[in-house]
Nucleic acid binder design. Structure first.
Lengths: 362, 362
DNA sequence: TCTTGATATTCAAACGTTTGAATGGTATAT
DNA sequence: ATATACCATTCAAACGTTTGAATATCAAGA
């Protein structure tokens, strides 16, 4: 057992044990075209020995020589946001058949970490990078190095086509429209709205969707029923924001029969706040979320929400990147730079018709 | 700009641009001890040029030469299980100051993927591996290659010390005891229990905790109130199991005033099922979960549960591995092979005293 | 003038792979 | 006998970096 005292088994160990050259062993174990010429018996012998010694090729040496790493960087702006999980999952799903490895890192919403991890991804020579981020951050210089090294990039969660970066995202405005239409069709007219943080890309288009659909239905949005989440990066803060707004709105005495929340956590916060204030959901007030993350599905009542096709978005991003890297003849279909996916209304138990005998003070 | 048509900027590009040797540039940019001898002006010039060209050292070449990768493998048995997120976060937290990179991969509960990713981690020459897995799987041969290559390993979520593998986990039995005691102290005597899947490590000790505490309180556990989740690997299936058991138990007519669920998703499923059957939580029935994942905190009523110090577990695992790899003099403190952390009762709104006038048929 | 001792820089080998070209075979066709 | 083809294997160079040893320059001390 020619094995170094410490460290990994290498080709040369296997070669020595087989009494063959390193080349032959490499050719067989990496299944290079030349391995056709290696006697079947030899091949068997080599493979057996390799697995007996526990040999695993060194990716670093291989990447160095082949000048390909079979690696994709996945930079999530905040993995603790439930939003990211399915996206990452979709990416992995797409990468697997291509034998690519996802280097996933989590910037935890911190700009400094974002920088650092982007650098690490570059140092690891990822062939492409997928950024999952809906926060609006100053990315100009961040992405400059990526360009200097000719690494293709795709962003999931916001539209950066203005900077010529391919973008995959949900049609937030359409989602807003659908959400509002759902409430309108149930008969609601006095609808409270919680707008998302200004620094979040999704906030504006969702709000526009709400407004357009309201206008179309001839509904005036009472400005006293419109709330605005602050710019807090912790995803849990939107839950607390929801709780607080619910209490404010109830104690204000202004009449309303439904709430459109910026996202699911805000909606769940609203439900908590409304419940603690003595209202029942959906009997006294309907609540609609946005995203369809796990907590929305397992809460009681289940939360009516707008589902983003997160997994599909991840998949699309990865596939597009793979196509860029390996422009195989057949794969010449052009991807539009902006891929905007349709959201989907998921009706659960948190919405219903407005209460008949609602007191309308003021 | 001496740059290859395609590909990354390398030391030799920077060297040529500076009219210096590769060695000098390397010494400066990697801040080797020798860089003390390099003139300050030269250092500045090199650094400026490197950043102008967008140079990033190639970790593959570096790892090859240095024979260290500054990389740790993190193999989660199922990342879509909310359980894993905080653990991974804790690991990252501990790895960061040591300048280690976490190679995190997600086996999605599939044995085949587990194998494949373990291989990838080995090929990437991770210096250590952290496995996050509470499922009981046949790991003997899986881990053999890790040993052959002298890669230290730690497992989070179950006790594998019998196989001489350092293990970090929560004291499930103690958690079971605390959960039961909480219900008993509220006055409950007729308590339903949902046991976890047999293939899950946590199931047995939690059940033992429930039983011990019940025995100590002089409570008989009615076998008709004990349910058993099937061996399904999808974490969402436990939610559905909870829903179903709730309906069964209600329609059976057997009296009960509280439920101890195997984990939070099961508990949330129970709440859904009980609610749909017309019972109120906690007025008609108290429910306790286990784990304290995000959905438990944002549901209404908030779920009373047993919190696992997940983040801390991840941190501990990573620190122990780092200590193994860099046995710096001061760090000689011995880690016990089994690190069992205390769980913590988190009281929220899903538990309360038993209903006074409960009908007790049978 | 010759050491000695800094300081500033370069040489060259090595890390573990891959792979185009080369090597010696042996069998078949001319 | 010689060329041709194929088979099984090996040579050697390269990928981008690090680093112990070597070199070159200059100043000061003997």
């Amino acid at each position: 057992m020619a094995k170094r005292a410490s460290g990994h088994v290498t080709l040369s160990h296997v070669a020595r044990a087989c009494e063959l050259s390193i080349s032959t062993v490499s050719i067989v174990l990496s299944e290079a075209p030349l391995s056709r010429h290696v006697a079947e018996a030899t091949r068997q012998r080599i493979r057996a020995m390799a697995s007996r010694l526990g040999y695993h090729p060194d990716v670093h040496a291989r990447s160095l020589r082949r000048r390909r790493t079979q690696t994709m960087g996945v930079l999530a702006y905040d993995l603790s946001d439930p939003f990211c999980i399915p996206v990452v999952h979709g990416i992995e799903e797409a990468l697997q058949p291509a034998q690519y490895f996802a280097l996933q890192v989590n910037a935890q919403g911190k700009r400094k970490l974002f920088d650092r991890y982007l650098r690490m991804i570059l140092e690891r020579r990822a062939e492409g990078v997928i950024v999952i981020a809906s926060w609006i951050f100053e990315e100009a210089d961040l992405l400059a190095d990526i360009e200097k090294n000719h690494v293709p990039i795709v962003i999931v969660g916001r539209d950066l086509t203005a900077r010529r970066i391919p973008s995959v995202l949900v049609d937030n405005k359409a989602g807003g429209v659908v959400a509002m239409q759902h409430l309108v069709s149930l008969g609601h007219r006095r609808i409270a709205i919680v707008r998302g943080p200004e620094e979040l890309f999704d906030s504006e288009p969702r709000w526009q969707g709400f407004r357009c659909a309201a206008a179309e239905a001839g509904i005036d949005l009472d400005p006293r029923l419109v709330f605005q989440l602050p710019n807090r990066l912790d995803p849990r803060s939107s839950f607390e924001g929801g709780v607080q707004f619910a209490k404010e709105i109830v104690s204000s005495g202004i009449s309303f029969t439904a709430v459109l929340a910026f996202d699911d956590l805000t909606a769940l916060g609203m439900i908590r706040g409304l419940t603690e204030a003595g209202l029942r959901v959906p009997a006294d007030c309907s609540v609609v979320g946005f995203d369809d993350i796990l907590p929305a599905a397992v809460a009681t009542p289940g939360l009516t929400t707008i589902r983003q096709p997160l997994e599909e978005m991840g998949q699309l991003a990865a596939e597009r990147l793979l196509a860029t890297l390996n422009p195989s003849d057949s794969d010449k279909k052009r991807y539009p730079r902006l891929q905007m996916l349709a959201p989907q209304l998921v009706v659960r138990a948190s919405t219903g018709g407005p209460q008949q005998a609602g007191p309308i003070p003021e």
